[in-house]
Amino acid sequence: MSSDTPILSIRDLTVDFAPKSGRLPAVSNVSFDVTAGEMMCVVGESGSGKSVTALAIMGLLAADTAISGNILFEGRDITRLSRREWQKIRGRQIGMIFQEPMTSLNPVFTIGRQLVETIRHHERVSVRAARDRAVELLDMVGIPSPRSRLDDYPHQMSGGMRQRVMIAIALICSPRLLIADEPTTALDVTIQGQLLDLLNDLRSETGTAIMLITHNMGVVAEVADRVTVMYSGCVAEQAEVMQIFDHPAHPYTSGLMNCTPKLTVTSAQLNTIPGSMPNPAAAPPGCLFAPRCELAIDACSEGRPAQVNLTGNHSSACIRAEMLLGESAE
């Protein structure tokens, strides 16, 4: 959308698990940008490295991981920050919401107390002022009669409500970037739609850029400005949302889109992409998707394909990308 300088810029990010005892690459050479105020969706099936990338941005990876490459947040490399510097960024500049709203709130305190304490942790305000701010935040995320809900415990709320509270907590400091790691996966479809609308509204109201991680192409179609498709720890394709749906330039992207059930077609079986992701400890030498790809040719198993720049912001890591584009243009 906006071609401003990106607020988050990831360059050649590689994350290895257990670097001491035989390295397991979870993410390799991932590069992408998030520009201010946009909704960037990261799509891919389980294990494609979406969440690991998010945790790397937040500096929340386990100790037994090695990161290389750069994560530039507002032009500053945050991969080598000290603990203290991280704590200043988390919550203040980058907020994050998680997949499991049912367990992401502390069960022993009321949500009001959790909000008030987080507010007071970040800003020097009185309890009364923090409570007012909490009510404001709950109202903003669409919780009805917010003042009376402040004294509720998390178990008194539904999953959708709790996720709204999580969003409220993430918004306390109006972060520049909000990372939402599959925020709607654990919720039912109607609530899913409401929350996505909420995220979209908040984005246009506050100008917060959102990096939305999902495995659901339907979600992508609904809210994304730009899309990054990840497969097995690598970026498969990047493009603006219209481009990717109209002219997918990577067979994995088209595969994902075919997996979305369609109302117009009645079939007994859902479409799938046959096979499964390669074991990161024993990855094939060529294109990681080649073993599952219908369009694979011999050249696909010779060396990793590089990102090919197609039109504008569109790039794909498929050696047959131009051919695919040509096909869909016809």
């Binding site: 929340l60 960024i89 919550g91 998680f98 992401s104 993430a170 306390i172």
Partner: peptide, 8 residues
């Protein structure tokens, strides 16, 4: 993890 992500 959520608390840590909010800067605790």
């Amino acid at each position: 993890m959520a608390a840590r992500a909010s800067g605790a």
